[in-house]
Simulated assay, not measured.
Amino acid sequence: MDRTLNTLSGSSQTTLIDRDIAHIARVMRTSLRGDLAGPILPAGYWRKRLHELLDTGHLSHAQLCTIDSLLLQLDQFEAEPQPAYDTLAPAAAALFPPPYPASASGQI
Rank of each mutant, 00 (worst) to 15 (best):
T14G: 02
E80P: 01
M1D: 13
E52I: 09
D2R: 10
E80I: 01
Q82K: 06
L72G: 08
S12F: 05
F77W: 09
Q82G: 04
L8I: 00
A62D: 14
G38C: 03
A43Y: 01
C65M: 13
V27S: 11
H61Y: 13
N6W: 07
L50C: 13
V27E: 14
A43I: 02
S31I: 01
L50W: 13
L32F: 06
C65Q: 15
T87S: 14
G38W: 01
T66P: 01
L74Q: 04
E80W: 07
L36Y: 15
E78T: 08
K48A: 07
G44S: 13
D35H: 11
P81M: 02
I24E: 04
R33H: 14
Q76S: 10
D20Q: 13
D86F: 10
N6M: 08
Q63H: 07
R19D: 12
P39S: 11
H58T: 09
G38Q: 04
L53V: 04
Q82H: 08
L74K: 01
T56W: 00
I40P: 11
L32K: 01
S69Y: 06
D75S: 05
R19P: 02
A79Q: 09
I67L: 03
L72C: 07
S9F: 06
L64M: 11
P83R: 00
T7F: 02
L54C: 14
H61K: 12
L54K: 15
R19V: 07
G57R: 01
E80T: 09
G57K: 01
G34L: 01
S9A: 11
D2L: 06
L16W: 10
